[in-house]
């Protein structure tokens, strides 16, 4: 087994029980190298708990996890050297400038002097903090703080970045820029493991996802894989009609693969049990009766509906 082919994160039957509740229940998954992997679940699902275990900051109740082959319980130092971890709340030291802050962490990572300067310069360029070097860190905006923290996790050039809700609290612009930063990191060959409770944040950039709710892993794999697994389950279509029509319902019911139909004004929603290739029957039937429509949305296509179909959406 070559090292390159081993997944960078391996989680097996990982369980974390706190005094009163089980925050994580026997979850198992792998994350391959070089991808952006989303770890998605509502608030209280157990994301932070899992991430802190992966970062070797918390000892699990049972099961195990490996970062690049290093066990998080028995080899915490190795694990910390191999990953960059950004907590959900980013604390910064008061009274240090951005430059001093990064210099401090470079020194703390024991980089040799020459490499230290190069590393700091690299991460500053990557995160575009160049014009803020003299600014004191505690006056930075949330978005800039996030960047600074990301820069800090990159200093020791880890192959894996674990980011806990990095996009929460960012304004839309900062969020888009942050996404750009993550794709840039993927281009550089890093693996990014990031959690979120908001799906739209991730759907456009994630190569694969794990979905967790109430400590239980509901699905795991690439978005396509998860969709494939859900085949046979119903797909919903939402059609926007040009004008209101009452006969649409009966037209659709004549097609056997159509499940429940819901008509609300110009919005038509129906479930489809058949193969994708046969959906043209519906459009054909509508066209034959001269019913025009202005938009079609296949709900399963995005991560959002995938998520909704998997989770009960309860916040714990």
């Amino acid at each position: 087994m070559s090292l390159v082919s081993t997944p960078i994160i391996q989680v097996r039957d990982l369980t974390m029980r706190f005094a009163k509740k089980e925050a994580v229940s026997a979850i198992s998954f792998d994350v391959p190298r070089g991808v952006i992997h989303g770890f998605i679940g509502p608030n209280g699902a157990g994301k932070t708990t899992t991430i802190r275990i992966l970062a070797s900051l918390l000892v699990p109740t049972s099961g195990g996890a490996w970062i690049d082959g290093a066990n998080v319980v028995t080899e915490p130092e190795e694990v910390r050297r191999r990953l960059g971890y950004m907590p959900d709340y980013v604390g910064v030291y008061e009274g240090l400038s951005v430059q001093e802050y990064l210099d401090f962490f470079a020194l703390a990572h024991r980089l040799a002097p020459a490499r230290r300067r190069a590393s700091v310069a690299d991460v500053i360029e990557l995160t575009d903090l160049g014009n803020l070097l003299e600014t004191e860190v505690h006056v930075l905006s949330k978005g800039m703080r996030q960047r600074l923290c990301l820069a800090q996790t990159l200093l020791h050039e880890p192959d894996l970045l674990i980011l806990d809700e990095p996009a929460s609290g960012l304004d839309p612009r900062a969020r888009i820029e942050f996404r750009g930063l993550l794709t840039e990191l993927r281009r550089l060959g890093k693996t990014v493991f990031l959690s979120s409770h908001i799906l739209s944040e991730l759907s456009s950039i994630c190569d694969s996802v794990s979905i967790i709710e109430k400590g239980v892993l509901l699905a795991d794999g690439s978005i396509e894989e998860i969709q494939m697994r859900l085949r046979g389950a119903t797909v919903a279509y939402e059609v926007t009609l040009l004008e209101e029509s009452t006969e649409v319902e009966s037209i659709l019911r004549e097609i056997p693969q159509v499940g429940s139909v819901l008509l609300e004004g110009r919005k038509l929603r129906f479930d489809w049990d058949g193969e994708d290739a046969l959906i043209h029957q519906v459009w054909g039937a509508l066209a034959a009766r001269k019913i025009a429509f202005t938009g079609v949305r296949r709900e399963e296509d995005d991560l959002e509906s995938l998520f909704m179909s998997l989770t009960s959406g309860e916040v714990q």
Binding site: A55, R80, R81, Y85, Y93, T153
Partner: peptide, 13 residues
């Protein structure tokens, strides 16, 4: 309390 401890312990120190 300032939540910088997790960052600090994550370094090589």
């Amino acid at each position: 309390l300032g939540r910088t401890w997790d960052l600090l312990i994550g370094t090589d120190l």
